[in-house]
């Protein structure tokens, strides 16, 4: 397995979808290849950091819908006859 092959298998590896033989070959390659281990580490951190960055934003947003938006949505509903 080359580094090119290994990087193509990253998502299946992380999702646990690699067949047994490929998983073994992937593990062996990682054991021998420091750049691929580092790449995998950065790949995982990318997913984790993006999740955290957008989730933290959501915590701020999530608390409450601004009152004017609530009123605008309810007004739009009452002005739309087929929703009544």
């Amino acid at each position: 397995m080359t580094c090119h092959d290994a990087l193509n298998f990253l998502d299946d590896y992380l999702d646990g979808n690699l067949p047994w033989g490929q998983r073994l070959a992937f593990g062996l390659h990682l054991g021998l290849c420091r750049p691929c281990r580092d790449y995998l580490d950065g790949y995982r951190k990318t997913i984790e950091a993006s999740r955290k960055a957008l989730s933290e934003q959501a915590v701020v947003t999530c608390e409450q819908l601004p009152e004017e938006m609530v009123q605008a949505i309810l007004a739009a509903r009452s002005q739309t006859p087929h929703i009544e």
């Binding site: 580094c3 990087l7 750049p35 580092d38 950065g42 984790e48 950091a49 955290k52 933290e56 934003q57």
Partner: peptide
Amino acid sequence: GHRSNPGSRWTNSAAEISEQHETQQLIR
């Protein structure tokens, strides 16, 4: 099949990096 530019090792954890508000904004 080897990478042309392997880059360097990431020294910080995602949790450490994401704790900083400015960094979170940068990631977004």
